[in-house]
Amino acid sequence: MSEIQDERHVLRRRPATDGEAAKCKANRAAKKAAEAKETVPKFLTETLQGTGCQCVKLTFYKDNHMGVYIEGRRGTGAWEFLAIDTESPYIDQRPLLAAGTPEVREYRMRFWDKGTPNGDWTDVVKVTVSP
């Protein structure tokens, strides 16, 4: 029985061949690079009470990009360009479309570098804004 245990101990401590070590190192590097390079910005929303109506605070994470390109949509309208922002947060202070009536606002972002929006759009996030 002790011979089997001794052999298992030897197998676990066996040094990897140069090829195995290189392959393992390359796999770790590829995994780290994939995790580090996000394809879409991450952002959080928060509703704040503003003058006359609520505002929406968008806290975003650029992941080493220059900035984010932000679009919004109110009700059933078209997507509108809101901002290119290089410092978080962005605060949407637009007035309600119909004064005194709550509305649903939708937001999406993508990265912005060297004057050009790039990457995929984030998932759409909906926020209800009230008077």
Rank of each mutant, 00 (worst) to 15 (best):
P131Y: 03
R105M: 07
G77I: 08
Q54C: 09
P15Q: 04
V56I: 13
G119E: 09
V129L: 06
W79G: 12
L11P: 05
I70K: 12
K25I: 01
V10E: 01
F81I: 14
K62F: 08
H65K: 11
N64K: 14
L11W: 14
F81D: 15
I4N: 06
S130G: 03
T59A: 13
G50T: 09
T86A: 14
E3C: 01
A26S: 06
V127E: 08
A33S: 12
E35C: 04
T39I: 13
A99P: 09
S130I: 03
E35I: 04
T47D: 06
P41Q: 02
E71D: 08
G119H: 10
K114H: 05
R108I: 06
H65W: 09
T128R: 13
E106F: 01
A34G: 00
H9C: 11
H65S: 06
M109G: 07
V127M: 08
V56E: 09
T39V: 15
Y90E: 00
T45G: 11
Y107K: 07
A83C: 02
W121Q: 08
R73W: 02
A78Y: 11
S2T: 13
E106L: 02
T39C: 14
L82T: 00
P131S: 04
F60P: 01
T128G: 12
G119I: 05
D63G: 01
V10W: 01
V68C: 15
H65I: 06
K126R: 14
K114C: 10
C53D: 11
A29N: 03
E106H: 03
Q93P: 03
S130Q: 08
K57P: 04
G67C: 11
E38D: 11
F81S: 07
A33T: 06
M109H: 07
I4H: 05
T76I: 05
K37C: 05
D123T: 15
T128K: 09
P95C: 15
T116Y: 00
G72P: 00
F111T: 05
D123C: 09
Y69G: 08
E20G: 09
D85F: 02
P117R: 04
E46N: 11
V40K: 09
P95S: 15
T86G: 15
G119N: 09
V10M: 01
C24I: 11
G50Q: 07
R28E: 14
K126N: 08
A83L: 01
M1V: 03
T128C: 10
P41T: 03
V104P: 07
E38S: 15
Q5K: 07
T45C: 13
R74M: 07
Q5G: 03
L11F: 10
G115T: 03
E103W: 13
F60K: 02
K114L: 08
E3K: 07
G75A: 12
Y61E: 14
A78R: 12
K23D: 02
T76D: 12
R110I: 03
F43Q: 01
D92M: 07
S2H: 11
R13W: 00
A29D: 01
E46Q: 12
D18R: 10
I70V: 15
D63M: 02
F60E: 00
D123M: 12
S88V: 04
Y90K: 00
V68Y: 12
F111M: 05
Q54P: 08
E46H: 13
E38Q: 15
Y107C: 06
F81H: 15
G19W: 04
